[in-house]
Design a protein around this nucleic acid. Structure first.
Length: 418
RNA sequence: GCGGAUAUAGCUCAGGGGUAGAGCGCCUGGUUGUGGUCCAGGAGGUCGUGGGUUCAAAGCCCAUUAUCCGCCCCA
C-alpha cells in the first residue's frame, strides 16, 4: 500500500491518458492560432482581492471555494479559481491595452482551484482552456468567441452538445428582472428555509437554471429576461444572433442561462454536453464590459469563454472519441551479443529517421522479447538473429497481420516507410 | 455545504462471526527463432484506515478517509 495519495479532488494523469489531454489542448491551441489569438500564461496564484473584485463578493466561488492562504509576508494570496481575472490583470499590467482602440486576443490553458465536494467532472484542481477578446463591443466579437468554442468541440468530434445563448442585459435590466422573478416566485419563496431563501434573494437569476423540478414547474410561466433588456442590449443581442446564423452555427436561445460570476453583461452562453450528468456544462462564457474598469483599467469592453478540459474528455469518452494508445512504430528483437550491437545501430538510425523504436534491455529470450513487442503495440517487429546477421538482413514482421519477410538491412528504412 | 451508495488480488467483482475466492491480467514452462490462441504450473491480499464488541472480526458496532450518484455550485 502506498503511503501517500493524491489530495482529495485531485488526480494524476498517467501515461495512458496523457495523450488524450494533449489532444484536447492541441486542438484548442490550433483553433486559437487560426483565429489569431496569442497564448498568455499567468501565475498560479494572485492577490486574493483580484478574485474578490472580479467574481463578486457574494459569489459562491469567492465565498466558499477559494484556496486562500497568507504568504510569509502576511499577504493574502489565492490559487486561481478561474482564468479570466488573471489574464485581464496581466493584459493591463503588460500594457497591451495602452494604445487606444486596441483589440487584444489571447488564449490560455490553466489549472483552476476550487474547494468543492468532488464529483465526476468536478475536481478541486480542474483544468481549463479559454480565450478573451478584449477591446471590442461589437456583436461580431461575441459571435467570434461563440464560433470558436463550437469549432473547438467540432474539432474534437463531440456531437451531442447544445449551444445555449442568452442576454442578461445591463445592471438596470438585471435588477428589474430579478425583482420580477422574485415576485413571480414569492409564494414558493415563503416555504423555503432560511438558506434557500437567502440564496434566492442574493441571486434570483440562479433560480432559472435550478434542477429542482418544482422550481422548474413554477418557472414555466415566469417572465423572460430578454423582455427586460435595454434597447441597446436588445439590439446587440439581435446582432449576435444574426451573426451566428450567418456563420451557420447551430445554437438555441435559452433564457434560463445565467452565469455564476457577477461580472457578465449582455451576452452569456454555455455549451452543454448531453452525456455529462449533473456537471453538464462543457463551456461557459460571455461578455464582461465592466470588469476591466473594476480592475483599475480604463473602461474596456471584452468577451471571453472558458472550457473545461476534464468535461471535454468525459464527453469524448462517452462518444468513444478517445484515441487508442499511442503506437510504437518498431520493436527490435535481437538474439545474441552481435545481433544486439547491430540492433542498437539500427534503432539509432531509425530514430534519426523519426521512426519510434524500442528494444529489449533485459537480455531476455526470443519469446519474451516478442511478448514485449506485442505489449508495446508496435506496428512492426524487427528480428535479428544469427541468420539475419550472417546475411546482413533483417526480418520485418507486421504485428497486425503476422506477415513477415526478410530484407537486406540497407533497405530497411525504405521498406518501413512504404 | 446537504442527502444516498460503495470500499475484498494489478483490474472487474463475488462471498461472508471460525484456514481468502473467481474471471481477466502478470510470471514460468510446453516451444534455447516468433507476441496476440491453446495446455500445465506459479506469484500476488494486514478484505480502505482507526477504534470497539467477541474465545474468535474481513464480516457486527462506532468513527474516519476516499470514490461514485443526486442537490448545491460550475468548467
Amino acid at each position: 500500500m502506498p503511503k501517500f495519495k493524491a489530495p482529495r479532488g485531485t488526480y494524476d494523469v498517467l501515461p495512458d491518458t496523457a495523450s488524450h489531454w494533449s489532444r484536447v489542448e492541441t486542438a484548442f491551441a490550433e483553433i486559437s492560432e487560426l483565429y489569431g489569438y496569442g497564448e498568455i500564461r499567468t501565475p498560479m496564484f494572485e492577490e486574493t482581492d483580484l478574485f474578490v473584485r472580479s467574481s463578486g463578493e457574494t459569489s459562491e466561488v469567492v465565498n466558499k471555494q477559494m484556496y486562500t492562504f497568507l504568504d510569509k509576508g502576511e499577504r493574502s494570496m489565492t490559487l486561481k479559481p478561474e482564468g479570466t481575472a488573471p489574464v485581464l490583470r496581466a493584459v493591463l499590467e503588460g500594457g497591451l491595452l495602452n494604445q487606444q482602440g486596441q483589440v487584444v486576443r489571447v488564449w490560455y490553458k490553466t489549472p483552476i482551484f476550487r474547494y468543492e465536494r468532488p464529483q465526476k467532472g468536478r475536481c478541486r484542481q480542474a483544468h481549463q482552456v479559454g480565450m478573451e477578446l478584449i477591446g471590442s463591443s461589437s456583436p461580431n466579437a461575441d459571435a467570434e468567441i461563440i464560433e470558436m468554442t463550437v469549432r473547438f468541440y467540432q474539432a474534437l468530434g463531440i456531437k451531442q452538445l447544445g449551444v445555449l445563448v442568452n442576454s442578461i442585459g445591463r445592471a438596470q435590466a438585471r435588477r428589474a428582472y430579478a425583482d420580477a422573478i422574485l415576485n413571480h416566485m414569492a409564494s414558493w419563496l415563503k416555504d423555503q428555509d432560511q438558506e434557500g431563501r437567502a440564496r434566492a434573494e442574493k441571486n434570483p437569476l440562479r433560480l432559472l437554471d435550478s434542477k429542482d423540478p418544482s422550481i422548474q414547474d413554477l418557472l414555466s410561466g415566469a417572465p423572460v429576461v430578454t423582455d427586460y433588456l435595454e434597447p441597446e442590449s436588445r439590439e446587440h443581442y439581435d446582432a449576435v444572433l444574426k451573426r451566428l446564423n450567418e456563420a451557420d452555427i447551430e445554437f438555441e436561445e435559452a433564457p434560463r442561462i445565467v452565469r455564476g460570476l457577477d461580472y457578465y453583461t449582455d451576452t452569456v452562453f454555455e455549451v452543454e454536453g448531453r452525456m455529462l450528468g449533473a456537471q453538464s456544462a462543457l463551456c461557459g462564457g460571455g461578455r464582461y464590459d465592466k470588469l476591466i474598469q473594476e480592475l483599475g483599467g480604463s473602461p474596456t469592453p471584452a468577451v471571453g469563454a472558458a472550457m473545461g478540459i476534464e468535461r471535454a474528455l468525459i464527453a469524448m469518452e462517452a462518444e468513444d472519441l478517445l484515441p487508442d494508445v499511442d503506437r510504437l512504430d518498431v520493436f527490435v528483437v535481437a538474439l545474441g551479443d552481435q545481433a544486439i550491437q547491430i540492433g542498437n545501430r539500427i534503432v539509432d538510425r531509425l530514430r534519426k529517421e523519426g521512426v519510434s523504436c524500442q528494444q529489449d534491455i533485459e537480455g531476455k529470450g526470443m519469446k519474451n522479447q516478442m511478448k514485449q513487442a506485442g505489449r508495446s503495440s508496435a506496428r512492426w517487429t524487427l528480428i535479428l538473429g544469427e541468420d539475419e546477421i550472417a546475411a546482413e538482413s533483417v526480418t520485418i514482421k507486421n504485428m497486425d497481420t503476422g506477415d513477415q519477410q526478410t530484407v537486406p538491412q540497407a533497405d530497411l528504412v525504405s521498406r518501413l516507410k512504404s
